[in-house]
Design a protein around this nucleic acid. Sequence first.
DNA 1: TAGCTTGTTCGATGTTTCACGAACGTCGAA
DNA 2: TTCGACGTTCGTGAAACATCGAACAAGCTA
Lengths: 120, 120
Amino acid sequence: MVVMKQARHPEPDEMTLIEVMAALSDPIRVGLARVLADGRERGWGELRAPVAKSTLSHHLRVLRDAGVTRTRQEGTRCFVKLRRSDLDARFPGLLNAVLTAAHSDDVGDRVGLTDKPSAG
Amino acid sequence: MVVMKQARHPEPDEMTLIEVMAALSDPIRVGLARVLADGRERGWGELRAPVAKSTLSHHLRVLRDAGVTRTRQEGTRCFVKLRRSDLDARFPGLLNAVLTAAHSDDVGDRVGLTDKPSAG
DNA sequence: TAGCTTGTTCGATGTTTCACGAACGTCGAA
DNA sequence: TTCGACGTTCGTGAAACATCGAACAAGCTA
């Protein structure tokens, strides 16, 4: 892969409420957040969503740029996890409120995990 | 005015997380929510925002359609207020988290009130 | 009736977003 | 070195969005 030329991981003080809200106003991205809500790091290939891989890459980038997730590379693989403590520190209660609402409404339920092992 | 032909006030069970998140991912609209955060009903004309009145009308409609605010007409005037209890019941903690974050980051600080009396 | 006020709606414009397939660059394996 | 797997990026198009000014409709007021 092209080693994420322009993707950034903002520091907590660089995160903006507007960007986080925008990142979490798409069902696919909320679904991704739900999948990662248990705090475990997941491999890119584990993620299952009803979109093409380029579109999934786009959504993961939006989440990453907003500071919602962190992406780590290992060789040619990527692993993604939720930046829960950073988000909680920066925007207290926000992530929990969104995840709770998403759970009770089944928002993003078309996003899930494959049966592949997480390789980690 | 044209008596709000298509604007709707969704019932709590018709509100969607995605729509509420989208409504609250614009600085003007977050600013409006902040202005209304004290629970008081405000007259349209009291609201001050750095946009044309047609744009302000648009933003108020997005908030209304999402269920964030309620608009009431009285003669030729409109009054707006936050639907806090409905939102709290539907998406617990969400509004407070957003308002807290917006306050600490001064999101939407270009939105405010005129010095006009609220007429109510 | 005529005129003013008040928001909404319309139409146009430019930007952003979402989506896809294809091409690409990097890594590890053969 | 050749090959395949893995994500990212590019190019493109459709749709959504933010914004404005102008036109409009409904209610006061003179």
